[in-house]
């Protein structure tokens, strides 16, 4: 059973009086522990696709199962709970909470979403900060960190709750090439260690090469470039 099963997914955005199609009927499956890239030009629908998988938005039609859950059916609160439980997010602009330290940013999902106890949190947060190589920067606020460091913290925040799936919309677009490479390798290493599925979008062909499965989106239609395992 695949982790994600999508059938005939369509997504239209309503702009004024007319429906603008962003996804024109796509089918795909993503296996557990896969390392997947979604590539395509700007406006091709990459973010739209990731938002649907991430339960942030509902498809206009089609069925989407994530971890055997029909995510389109979830209420607002249930969707939030589902994301908190099963998903992790990495954003292009890092989106760390500016008033929290690196440690506190990583701790946030455990504290404010999961409600873990202090000692349990501390152990887990330190472990994951260690894994992304940010343990020595734990006390710093985001504005004291470089872009690459921020994205490491963001990866740690996405992984701290041991989610089934991490979704990353252009996680390297704001990083220089070397740093982008290192972040991607970090994500892959994390996948190897924890078995977490990673789906990221990019339009950088070099980064794209790091993926094991690549989906190509073009004008709302999807094609698969196959596994290179």
């Amino acid at each position: 059973m695949a982790l994600i099963q999508a059938t005939a997914i369509k997504k239209n955005y309503r702009v004024g009086e007319i429906d603008v199609p962003a996804l024109k009927g796509i089918d795909f499956e993503i296996e557990k522990s896969a390392f997947v890239a979604i590539v395509g030009p700007s406006g091709s629908g990459k973010s739209t696709m990731l938002n649907l998988i991430g339960c942030l938005d509902h498809p206009s039609s089609g069925t989407l199962l994530v971890n055997d859950t029909e995510v389109a059916r979830l209420s607002r609160n249930a969707a939030a709970a589902f994301r908190g439980e099963h998903l992790g997010f990495v954003f292009q602009d890092f989106n760390l909470v500016p008033v929290l330290t690196a440690y506190e940013n990583v701790e946030y999902p455990l504290l404010m979403v999961r409600g873990w106890a202090e000692s349990k949190r501390r152990e887990r947060v330190m472990k994951i900060l260690e894994a992304v190589g940010m343990a020595d920067q734990a006390h710093k606020r985001p504005d004291q960190l470089s872009g690459g460091q921020k994205q490491r913290v963001a990866v740690a925040r996405a992984l701290v709750g041991e989610p089934k799936l991490v979704l990353a919309d252009e996680p390297t677009a704001n990083l220089d090439h070397d740093t982008a490479y290192r972040i991607l390798n970090l994500m892959k290493q994390m996948r190897d260690e924890s078995g977490t599925t990673f789906v990221f979008s990019t339009h950088d062909p070099k980064i794209m090469g790091e993926a094991e499965v690549t989906f190509i989106l073009e004008d709302g239609l999807l094609s698969r470039q196959g596994a290179q395992q």
């Binding site: 709970a81 908190g84 992790g88 989106n95 909470v97 404010m112």
Partner: peptide, 16 residues
């Protein structure tokens, strides 16, 4: 707004 979006995306309930 973006911070609110981020917190919501990573699973913070509306009540929180």
């Amino acid at each position: 707004i973006r911070e609110i979006g981020t917190l919501a995306a990573i699973g913070t309930r509306p009540g929180k």
